[in-house]
Simulated scan of single mutants.
Amino acid sequence: MVIEEKALKHWIDNFYGYGSWQAPFWFIGYEEGGGEVPEEVADKVNYFGRVHAQTGGELCDVRELYRHVAIRWDGPKKNLFTNRHQYRFESNAVQHGVWKNLIAFVHGYKAEKLPDLLAYQQHNFLSPSSHNEALIQLYPLPSPHNHAWYYSWLDMPELGFLKSRELYEAHVYEHRMHSILSNISTYKPKLVLMYGMNNINTLKKTIQDFFPDAKFKMVKAIKQQIPQHHRVDLEGVTMLITTQIPALRHNRIETGFDWEEFGKRVRSETHS
């Protein structure tokens, strides 16, 4: 399957993530995952172009999109799954390393007992009908774990900014942040967690330009408990920004944090 310029441009301009803008908890990751092979990118952007042909920032149903994203890997599990929906949501689903910690964070914040994390992923997480969570991407293009940039080879005259990651990020940043902040002002979620960010100072300035009264507080990390983060309260919305990703780095336990405990700490500060 070929990546088409029109579909890719529509994705860049209009795809924001999964779930519901009406959700009380928003998670904002640095960028959409995946993209190791061009066929996976094509599966995603073509589905989105068909189902979400309208313009304007869109959140879509991750379960429906994943039905249309084929798995093309080799290895011992290659015959277990044919698409991403089977891999994440069906009976033999594999637990997502980031999602499980985001689920734990919310339940910690809500002072609720942790559910079966895999079962919650399968049946509840990011369900647009449940309006529990939104998973939003600061940058829309699927990017692999090694952060390689595979878009520079595309011959797309209208998308010349794809020649480098730096050009692409500079091209989309201002519009996407304005849209995200506008939606925060409109929908007023209870809590917004931006994670895996490497541009903290730029983000803080953008937020303060949009919300002039915003005042950030830096909270130091507690090893293996809570990550260092920056907190700001925006018209009743708590926003957190951290460089940490809710997953272990290289599967080493000493690189992780207790995201349920992090949620509890944020709750205690909010209600103190």
Rank of each mutant, 00 (worst) to 15 (best):
A111H: 08
S127N: 07
G97N: 09
A104H: 04
D116I: 00
I103N: 07
A111V: 05
A134L: 02
K100F: 00
N146C: 06
K163F: 07
L126P: 01
L162Y: 07
S179D: 10
Y139F: 14
L102E: 08
P142K: 04
I103S: 03
Q121S: 02
K163D: 13
L162A: 09
R165G: 07
L167Y: 04
F125Y: 03
L154W: 01
L181H: 05
G97I: 10
P142V: 09
W99N: 06
E112G: 01
L126H: 05
L117H: 06
I103P: 12
I136A: 02
F161N: 14
I180D: 01
A104W: 03
L114N: 06
L167K: 11
N124S: 12
E166N: 09
V172Q: 03
L118F: 03
P128D: 13
V98T: 05
N101G: 14
W99K: 04
I136R: 05
N101K: 12
L138S: 14
Y150H: 15
L154C: 08
K100M: 11
Y150A: 11
V172D: 05
A134N: 07
H145I: 15
L138W: 00
L162W: 06
M177P: 08
P157R: 02
Y109W: 10
V172H: 00
S129A: 09
I180Q: 02
E166G: 12
D116T: 04
K100L: 06
H96T: 08
V98Q: 01
L154Q: 01
S152A: 13
P142H: 05
E158K: 15
A111T: 07
P115F: 01
A119M: 07
A170G: 09
A119E: 06
V106K: 12
Y151T: 15
A170Y: 00
K100W: 04
P128G: 11
S143Y: 04
H145A: 09
E133W: 00
P115W: 00
W99C: 02
R165C: 14
K113P: 14
Q137E: 02
P157C: 11
D155P: 03
E133P: 08
Y168E: 07
L118Q: 06
I136G: 09
L181Q: 05
E166I: 12
L141F: 02
Y109D: 14
F105T: 15
S164T: 13
L126C: 03
L167G: 08
S129P: 14
W153R: 12
R176G: 09
K113N: 15
M177T: 04
